[in-house]
Structure formats: structure tokens, C-alpha cells
Amino acid sequence: MPLYWRVIVINAAVFVLGTLALALAPVTVSARVLASEAVVLAIGLVTIVVLNALLLRSTLVPLDRAARLMERVDLEKPGERLPETGNGAAADLVESFNAMLERLEAERDASTARALAAQEAERQRIARELHDEVGQGLTAMLLGLKRAVDRAPDDIRSDLILVQDAARGSLEEVRGVARRLRPSVLEDLGLLSALSATATELSTHSGIHVQRGLAQGLPDLSPEAELVIYRVAQEAMTNVARHSEADTAYLSLTRQGDAVALLVADNGRGVRGRTEGTGIRGMKERARLVGADLTVRPRPEGGTEVRLVVPAKAAT
């Protein structure tokens, strides 16, 4: 029955019961209502109102719950659902609302997966172009500069050596950017070596000391889950270098039951009072794609802690 007619029927039933009670009850009402009669009428009115409220409660309360959930629902924090109790139009509404949330979350995850896949493909394309085009060009330049330095007179040789050093530095920068864009070390040497290389790169470029705890014998992970762990660690370490003002960072990958736990922490200024940036949102989106749980919180002793827990054999 539609909700409108359900409310009409409930109210009609209450009014009929009230009318029958007045008709069959041994009570009368004087032209000038007496105090005792007013009490009886008041009791009858309260009874009708309470009965009507009780009968309508099961029908309308789910609507209030749905409205409150609509106000606070956040697709970045999936899983909130209305309890599916009762029957009738309200139960159908609750079931449809929960199905809509599931559909929206599934569509959001699918669109995020497509966006991240496109992002990875674009990163690999740019990395290849940097390596094949820019890198090869700088290498040819260095070879030419070497021949020029060997044949140059003494008065300009020092200038050519400075140009040669600058070109060599640019080549190293290009190779570093290409490595960050395309984690070939992850494909070639595995997750632990890739994380270790990320920690070494952070120490080299920022001077932050990185304490590592990368355990062996971890559960099997899908390639997608390994890529998520690597990208989350890479983004977290980048945030440490850019924002933390720390002198020590901590990187660990350990087994946690049937899951793998990544921890990136620092002893810097922490995240209190700062809004969530695009980097953290990107990490959460990646984590959700493989069913992982990611938390970013301040450490009691100071600094920030990023923890990612990935179930073994995480599905995409």
C-alpha cells in the first residue's frame, strides 16, 4: 500500500474506534460540559492521540532515520546503512535507500579505479618519454661535452666542465623523476626493495633519517595491493619531507594476522588543526579499492602516523 493511503487508513481506523467508543460507552455530554465530563473527554482525546502516534510511528520513523542519514552520509566513509525492519511502504523505502547507497558507493569505487588506472598509465607514459627522449638527449649532450672538454683550450675548459656538471645533474633529476613516476623497482625487485629505495631517496634528498622495519615472509598480495602499498608509502614519505619538519621518520611493513600493515611515522609537528589535503584523500581512495583500512592521526609523542592495513590476497 502506498504511504499516503497507509496513513489515511491508520487515521480512519483510529477515528472509527473513537466514534464507536463514544457511541457504546455509557457516557453523556451536557449542554454545558461538566468537569467530570471534561475529564472523560480529555482522557478519550489523549487515548486517540497516543494510539494514532503509536500506529504511525512504525510507518514514519524510518523516514526520519533516512533524512538524518542523508544529512551525514559521506561516500568517502562507506558502509552506513539504515536498519531494514518492519514491512510496508516504509520498509520498501529503506530497502531502496540502502540499495541506492550501495550503488553510489560501487559507482564511486569504479570511477576511482578507472581514474587511478588512467593516472598510472599516464605516469608510465611520461616516465618512458622522460627516459627515452629527455634522458637520451641529455646523454648525447654529455658525450658531446666530454669530447669538447677534451679538445677545448684551457681558458674555456673550466666553463665547459661546469656546463657538463649541470647537464649531468639534470640527467640525474630526470632519471629520479622517471623512477618516481614508474616504480620499475617494484616490478623488478619486489615490494620490500621498492620501499627501501623510497626510504633511501627520502634520506638522500631531505636529510631525514629513516628507521626501517621491513619484515620478510609476508602474506601473498595481489599486484594491485602491492602498488597501493607502494603509492601510499611514497605519498606519506613525500608529506614527511614537505610538511613535517621532522628529523626522523619510521617506515615498517609487518604481518598483522592475515593482513599486511604499513606504517609511516615521523617526529615532526603533526597534523593537529590542519585540513585533509588531496594527498591524504588520494591515499584513502587507493586503500578503499583493495579493501584496505587507512588511518592518519597524530602520535602521542609528537608527529604524524599513517597506517595502512591491507588484507592478504586483496581483491581489486
Rank of each mutant, 00 (worst) to 15 (best):
L289T: 05
Q216M: 12
S196A: 12
L20P: 14
E173T: 06
L189Y: 04
E235C: 02
A199Y: 13
L34H: 10
H205K: 15
E235H: 10
L34C: 08
A225T: 00
L162Q: 15
T316Q: 11
R286S: 11
R168N: 06
L82H: 06
T28G: 14
E102V: 00
A194G: 12
A106V: 00
V310G: 07
T295K: 10
E120R: 09
L192R: 15
A233N: 05
D266F: 01
L214D: 14
S36E: 10
L17F: 14
E122Y: 07
T304E: 00
H209A: 14
T295C: 08
T200G: 14
A127F: 13
L202H: 13
L75T: 01
Q216T: 12
R128S: 06
R157A: 04
L3M: 09
V73R: 12
L145T: 09
A90D: 02
G282F: 04
R297T: 01
A194L: 13
L3Q: 09
L221N: 05
A31S: 14
L69Q: 04
A91M: 06
G257I: 00
R128Q: 11
L41S: 06
A121N: 10
I161Q: 15
Y230P: 10
R182D: 15
A38M: 02
S203A: 14
V185R: 07
Y4M: 13
E201A: 14
E80C: 05
G135Q: 04
A292E: 08
I126Q: 09
L101P: 10
E129C: 07
V39E: 00
S206M: 03
R151V: 05
V149D: 10
L171D: 08
D132V: 02
I161S: 04
R182K: 13
A12W: 15
V27H: 14
Q136L: 05
A287Y: 12
D74M: 02
E122N: 13
V16Y: 10
V271H: 15
I229D: 03
R157L: 02
E71G: 07
D159H: 06
R68G: 09
M141S: 15
L263Q: 01
Q119N: 09
E173C: 01
L116I: 00
A35M: 07
R108L: 02
H205P: 10
P26N: 06
K77V: 11
A13K: 10
R286L: 15
R103F: 03
L116R: 11
I229R: 00
G176K: 01
R297D: 15
D150G: 09
E224A: 11
V310F: 12
V210I: 15
E105G: 07
Q211V: 04
T238R: 07
R242K: 14
Q164S: 04
G86D: 11
V149W: 13
R231S: 08
A13L: 14
R182H: 13
D165N: 06
V228Y: 04
A314M: 05
G88K: 02
L17T: 12
T304N: 08
N11E: 14
G217Q: 07
L60P: 10
V177Q: 07
V40W: 11
L116C: 03
E76H: 05
S36Y: 11
V296L: 09
A292T: 01
L41I: 00
S184V: 03
V306H: 06
V134C: 05
G282D: 11
R68E: 02
A113P: 12
A249K: 00
G137D: 08
S111Q: 04
L63V: 01
E129T: 08
D132H: 13
S184Y: 05
E95A: 05
A315C: 05
A246V: 00
